[in-house]
Amino acid sequence: MEGLTVLAERKQLVGPGDVLAEGPYFAGENTYREGSKIFASRVGMADVIGNKLIVMPVKGAYIPRMDDIVLGRVFDIGMSGWQVDIYAPYPAMLPASETPMHRGRDSVRHDLRSIYGVGDLMIAQVIAFDRTRDPLLTTKGRGLGKVTSGRVARINNTKIPRVIGKKGSMITMLKKETGTDIIPGQNGVILVTGRNPDQELIAVEAIYMIEREAHTTGLTDRVKAMILERMKGITVGQ
């Protein structure tokens, strides 16, 4: 695993302190440089992009980034906005001015509650975050706003790219085969809405299956087979 002076194998499992490379490489995400060597700082798969080394983590906290779509829950209402739990180390702030319904209203406490109440789930977008201040959200935009129906699956945010798949292959398949709409939040919260609860349940089950087997081959096909099997069940039942 270690000891290769030039380069660790691609897609190899590495842990904190493992040597990835020595020489003129850049230390990318989840790696660090010390002297001429580059080390991993988290458990994950090593990879090389050009001359940059990165580690794709297998687990970890969600760190907000600008433009991320996230699903969050309101936990407090203030004078000028909402505090939203986006399952990150930092609470997010949704200012009243960032809601489409805000126009022409004055922000009295009562008024805000009529838009989002405590416990409401929403789809929002991160508009600013730089670690020195708490993330700012917006619900202005297509597809953003309060969640009124559907089912929620929560997985580790590092597995979200797998749920989406290469060029969206996995998520397109999920939507097509289960007949549901799926909105993956970058924070690991996924909203599934379908015509009937059975479809939603199957989609949620498939998402958890993807999380469990995120690193296996031919996962799309196996998930598809599982869904088809389950879908048969519900059509018979109907």
Partner: peptide
């Protein structure tokens, strides 16, 4: 700590 996905210099 490593299992929690927290960046560590080493174990």
């Amino acid at each position: 700590l490593a299992d929690a996905g927290i960046p560590l210099r080493e174990l």
